[in-house]
């Protein structure tokens, strides 16, 4: 698919007999922000490492811009910027010196690339503070600066807000948004924080125990975040018949023999109750409900939910 920046097909990683990533099909569209959401240990970092060729998949394949990474490293790596796990740099060098090393390694021709990258993440240029004295937030920013130093098309950021204070998180979010909206970068970002992903991503992949449970757009997922009336009755089938006849309700779902959801929340609860009682249906409970995305994630992850 031409519009995909990353395509993972049946990606699997096993260590001995333990499956860490299991037959994952992940599709990151160009110029989109894709949020990979999962609890700690769900397999997010392993997937990112496999995408970057840092760990070999047990089976399956990864295509980046339609090409396998193997044998295309020199063509593909310059198009990718990555921050995987904690950012590592030389502790005896300053941020500028560290970035100058990476600029030289990458053969970056732009003379002010280091200054620009540091400006973007809000770190001072030619500061005398060595990396060993940096706070966690500064380290994270330098990691991002290194990822964008060579102006890549694709950014792979593994939990980029780790260790940042609330203002830093907001700034990082704005920065990621800006990279996508203003510069058209494709961004794959992982997080275990639901709110962070929902605020940032266009598309989302929910990973649980190495399995990609769902891949969808945030807009589609939000549609599932619906309001409804939940009716617990003695006979759901009979209740449905009554609701269809008396209220012309078509948008509902029967959950089980006694439980049904009515998605038209404008209906008068009193009238519904009256109609059902007249038909001899016992109402055990009736309430207006509102499923949040968190409820939805809790449901798809089998009740464990996401922080």
């Amino acid at each position: 698919m031409d519009n995909l920046a990353i395509e993972c097909r049946q990606l699997t990683k096993r260590y001995d007999e333990q499956s860490v990533v299991n037959q994952v099909n992940l599709n990151v569209k160009r110029e989109h922000i894709y949020g990979l959401l999962g609890r700690n240990g769900a397999g997010k970092t392993t997937i990112m490492k496999m995408i970057l060729g840092l760990t070999a998949p047990t089976s399956g394949e990864v295509l980046i811009f339609g090409m396998p990474l193997q044998r295309n490293e020199k063509r593909l790596y310059p198009r990718i910027g990555a921050l995987i796990e904690k950012p590592g740099f030389y502790p005896n060098l300053t941020g500028t010196e560290n970035l100058e090393i990476f600029a030289k390694l990458r053969g970056t021709t732009q003379s002010d690339a280091v200054r620009k990258a540091l400006d973007v993440v809000g770190l001072p240029y030619q500061d005398r503070k060595i990396f060993g004295q940096y706070s966690m937030g500064m380290k994270q920013r330098l990691g991002i600066a290194n990822a964008i130093l060579h102006d890549p098309e694709l950014l792979i950021l593994d939990e980029p807000t780790n260790g940042l204070d609330p203002i830093g998180i907001a700034e990082m979010r704005a920065f990621i948004h800006n990279m996508s909206a203003q510069f058209g970068k494709t961004i794959l970002i992982s997080s275990h924080i639901l709110s962070e992903i929902t605020l940032l991503a266009d598309d989302i992949g929910i990973l649980h125990n190495g399995i990609l449970l769902e891949e969808n757009t945030i807009a589609e997922l939000e549609k599932k975040n619906r309001k409804y009336i939940q009716l617990e009755v003695s006979d759901a089938a009979k209740a449905v018949l009554t609701l269809e006849q008396d209220f012309s309700i078509k948008d509902y779902s029967v959950q089980d023999l006694h439980l049904l959801h009515v998605y038209d929340t404008s209906l008068d609860m009193g009238k519904i109750n009256q109609a059902l009682i007249q038909q001899g249906i016992t109402i055990i409970s009736a309430q207006r409900c509102n499923d949040t995305l968190e409820d939805y994630f809790r449901k798809v992850t089998g009740g464990e939910g996401i922080a």
Partner: peptide, 17 residues
């Protein structure tokens, strides 16, 4: 030591080196 200890090798391999 530094590159091992500070988990830098993955950053170097994706340059690529």
């Amino acid at each position: 030591y530094d590159e091992h200890q500070n988990d830098m090798l993955k950053q170097l391999w994706v340059v690529p080196i």
